[in-house]
């Protein structure tokens, strides 16, 4: 097991180097320089421009810049945002909990609704129930979520006025972050109504972000269940007269869940990509919006550091999925 784990980690090292090289070189290829962008319509003198480029180290040869960058990264310094002039790592860490909270809620929503829906659809295969569940799932899977978010805002916030439009919690409540998760922090703060407020702010973004994973999980669960239900041991269990609930719940589901768990792991990248759109629509102060803003503001340091950190997160999650999978299913360790 240890060898398996070490092997996996060893593979990550060249991947990480490649990721850092890509992040670095992409950013250098961006047209237009950030110093120009800082001054906008106002024209900066050539000398001043050159001097700031020099201060930021942007005038050195590329390989030197890359090596400097790599050494800095390895010592935990991901650079300073060109726009806000604050450390990139600090900004990432202060915004990441918001994205993580939203993503976790979305995945929980997807699992809680998706797995039972998939199981039921499989059990009632071919009925109108199965067909409508799968129809809805396919619609969810095909959904342009940026549009979906706008529709939900128009309807629930605009027309019905049920949910707040954007933000993480009502501005009435103010407490220092402990965990960075608004739901937990609002409970810790002990302020009456804070938790409920945080929850109402979370609902629409969670639905929007959870839609595609929900559809994928429901479909995956259904097909995994169908496969398992066709296996001999399930048929045997059935023929032995075990209650259908036991057959499905205990024997079939347990085995069907293995590929479903992998699917859930694979949704992390999907979630982070979805977070880019969801956070943009709901002004959710997370890393997705942070990255989009940085791309538009040509904040080299943030785009570069953000790409690296996000890729790092995905790689770690994939590693965790791999390891879990290897743990459940020893055959693939080799």
């Amino acid at each position: 097991m240890l060898r398996f784990l070490l092997g996996r980690i060893a593979i990550l090292i060249p991947t990480f180097l490649g990721v850092s090289l890509i992040a670095f070189s992409f950013i250098r290829m961006l047209p237009g320089d950030p110093v120009m962008l800082m001054s906008g319509e106002r024209v900066m003198s050539e000398e001043k421009h050159a001097q700031i480029m020099h201060d930021l180290g942007l005038d050195r040869p590329m390989p030197v810049q890359y090596l400097n960058y790599l050494t800095d990264v390895l010592s935990g310094d991901l650079g300073t945002s060109i726009v806000t002039k604050r450390p990139v790592l600090g900004e990432f860490l202060s915004l990441f909990p918001a994205t993580l909270e939203l993503s976790l809620c979305a995945i929980i929503l997807a699992v809680v609704l998706g797995v039972p829906a998939g199981v039921l659809a499989a059990v009632k295969r071919g009925t109108w129930f199965d067909q409508s569940i799968m129809g809805v799932a396919l619609i969810g899977y095909s959904m342009p979520i940026f549009w979906w978010g706008l529709l939900l805002i128009i309807f629930f916030s605009g027309y019905l006025g049920w949910t707040p439009v954007s933000g993480r919690i009502s501005l009435m409540y103010f407490f220092p972050p402990v965990t960075g998760f608004m739901l937990i922090d609002s409970l810790l703060s002990g302020q009456a109504g804070a938790f409920k407020s945080a929850l109402t702010y979370l609902i629409l973004p969670t639905i929007v972000l959870g839609t595609i994973p929900l559809a994928v999980i429901a479909r995956q669960t259904r097909s995994a269940m169908l496969e398992v239900l066709g296996e001999d041991y399930v048929r045997t269990a059935k023929s032995k007269g075990l209650s259908p609930f036991r057959v499905v719940g205990v024997h079939a589901l347990r085995n069907a869940l293995i590929p479903v768990i992998t699917t859930i792991g694979l949704q992390v990248g999907v979630l982070l990509a979805g977070a880019i759109l969801t956070e943009t629509i709901f002004s959710w102060p997370g890393i997705g919006k942070w990255m989009v803003d940085a791309v538009f503001k040509r904040d080299y340091a943030v785009v570069q550091g953000g790409l690296l950190l996000i890729a790092g997160v995905i790689m770690l999650v994939n590693l965790a999925v791999d390891v879990t999978y290897g743990f459940i299913n020893p055959r693939i360790r080799h």
């Binding site: 805002i153 916030s157 605009g158 439009v165 954007s166 933000g167």
Partner: peptide
């Protein structure tokens, strides 16, 4: 309090809802 809301349509919604 400055509530940072980048989307203009969303700002309008919040204003109407009395959130700002």
């Amino acid at each position: 309090v400055f509530a940072i809301t980048t989307d203009a349509a969303v700002r309008a919604q919040k204003l109407k809802a009395g959130e700002c």
